[in-house]
Nucleic acid binder design. Structure first.
Lengths: 166, 166
DNA sequence: GTTATTGCAAATGATTTGCACAAGG
DNA sequence: CCTTGTGCAAATCATTTGCAATAAC
């Protein structure tokens, strides 16, 4: 796990007069070691599998703290779940493309996009502070080959149902 | 209210073997006459003020039907509420800029943005189907004049609290 | 008449919170 | 010690649903 993140969190924790606890540290460790987006239930499963004991309430509280500290960002992948993305520290302006066939999420950043957001906002009389862009798309693999390798994987994991149902 | 919308809804309703009801028609009428984004509670208030009698459950069911029919789009303005936008029929590719000072929402569309989304998606091996972009920004008025006219209005309506609390 | 629709109240699911006990500094 | 953190269970909030009565067609 990135030490810069640990330092920023420690700074935030002590500035607020909070304390170091083993439960919270385990949760933070898990989030920023795996370093991939997750839902609360997914994180809870991962913790359970690793034998980390931390209650649901504590996990919710740790997540809230990380969001307040600016280390974790809540994102919406359009699947009805609240998802958290720990990757904005390394890549502050990234966006998400969600494959509507297999659910695979691709992160991408583009300077032209940032430029355009900035210009458009200013033209309307605003200074952009934060943006969130999600593109939903279907993959060429499925279109051309009739099957998308990730689709199979996603179904096995119970993440995508044949029709699009949740 | 736009007759094209009524026609599309009627077509959808009869194709699914559903029925015309006064409650549903009132809800639809209200949504597409005012033609602005709304939360369920706001819509319910508007209906109550106009003396339209339609239960909360019926309003939820009507909204769901309109979303299924593609006439209404669920959007996320980042305030923790589910918002619905009836304006995608007239302006299929528009985006939202939310003023973080006053909460004012500005809709905008831009062809360069569409082009860029398309190119970026293709480069990653996808065909874009749908996108959602929200820019959060602060307004020059507040920055330069020390006050934003909409802020006052928003507070009166109880939409923005002094700090950013909900 | 048959079947969809409504309104109510109860159920659901995600998240938050009150409280008694445990633990950090 | 003193105060924050934890775990549990209960509370909350938005949304959905079961059901009996009502109304389309």
């Amino acid at each position: 796990m990135n030490t810069a993140i640990k330092e920023r969190l420690d700074a935030y924790v002590s500035s607020k007069g909070l304390r170091q606890t083993s439960q919270r540290n385990s949760v933070v460790e898990e989030i920023f070691t795996v370093d991939e987006h997750f839902t609360v239930d997914e994180l809870l499963d991962r913790l359970k599998n690793k034998g980390v004991k931390s209650s649901r309430a504590t996990v919710y509280r740790a997540i809230r703290l990380l969001v307040e500290a600016g280390l974790l960002v809540e994102i919406d992948l359009g699947d009805g779940n609240t998802t958290y993305d720990p990757n904005f520290i390394d890549s502050p302006t990234h966006n998400h493309l969600v494959c509507i066939d297999c659910g695979q999420v691709t992160e991408f950043a583009d300077s032209h996009l940032e430029m355009l957001n900035d210009c458009l906002s200013r033209r309307m009389g605003f200074r952009p502070v934060k943006k969130s862009l999600r593109i939903e798309a279907c993959c060429d693999k499925l279109r051309n080959l009739g099957s998308c390798p990730n689709l199979i994987k996603a179904r096995i994991n119970g993440k995508r149902m044949p029709n699009g149902k949740r």
